[in-house]
């Protein structure tokens, strides 16, 4: 299997896996925030790392609050949850019920964001992991304030390398918070995933 042979039905299957993972995470965030989470259908693209800068729908602001988990080994990539700065602060304030003062992201509040990011990323990776049926090796979650393009560049990805970008948005109703989930997958890992999906589909 190769990237050029990537069929619509393959992208569709991965999209559905991301959807299921995000849905599970949204149910947990719903419990935490007591607000309904509006979900959107993920958009999947295969792009070069250096194209991440020009992809629409991703925050270009370097102050974007990002939680990411890298995974290594037979299945390599990064899954990140990105909050535009104002959304990050509003979400933390909504979760903790704080009303006083300014919504600055200090050490304790970023830890809260890290948990929310962790919930979403684990939801998505859990869904993918179920299909892979093989143990993924994860690194601990990390909180950074940077663009996803810079994060990808600072990781081991080669700028010319083509990766799968799964991009989905969710909104926390009532508090108008936006989150963007991005999964960057090395092509070799994408091949493994597609192979497993084909097996599940019986193709």
């Amino acid at each position: 299997m190769c990237v050029t042979c990537l069929k619509d039905e393959d992208l569709d299957a991965i999209k559905e896996l991301v959807n299921i993972g995000v849905g599970r995470a949204a149910a947990m965030l719903n419990e935490i925030t007591c607000s309904h989470i509006i979900l959107h259908v993920p958009i999947l693209q295969v792009i070069r790392i250096d194209e991440l800068d020009s992809i629409g729908g991703l925050p270009r602001n370097e102050g974007a609050a990002t939680v990411k988990i890298d995974f290594r080994g037979f299945f390599t990539g990064t899954t990140a949850l990105i909050f535009p700065p104002e959304s990050a602060a509003a979400l933390v304030m909504a979760i903790t019920g704080e009303t006083d003062g300014q919504p600055e992201l200090d050490a304790i509040r970023t830890e809260t964001l890290m948990e929310v990011g962790n919930i979403f990323i684990n939801g998505v990776m859990g869904s993918i992991g179920n299909v892979l049926g093989q143990q993924i090796t994860y690194l601990p979650p990390v909180y950074v304030e940077d663009t996803i393009a810079n994060i990808a560049r600072s990781a081991r990805f080669d700028p010319d390398e083509r990766v799968l970008l799964a991009n989905t948005h969710f909104y926390v109703e009532d508090i108008n918070v936006e989150g963007i989930i991005v999964m960057i997958l090395e092509i070799g890992s994408l091949d493994i995933l597609l192979g497993r999906i084909a097996a599940v589909r019986g193709g």
Partner: peptide, 12 residues
């Protein structure tokens, strides 16, 4: 089940 590490924050 071998999933990714989970973080439980002090605020939540």
């Amino acid at each position: 089940q071998g999933g990714a590490p989970a973080v439980f924050s002090s605020q939540i």
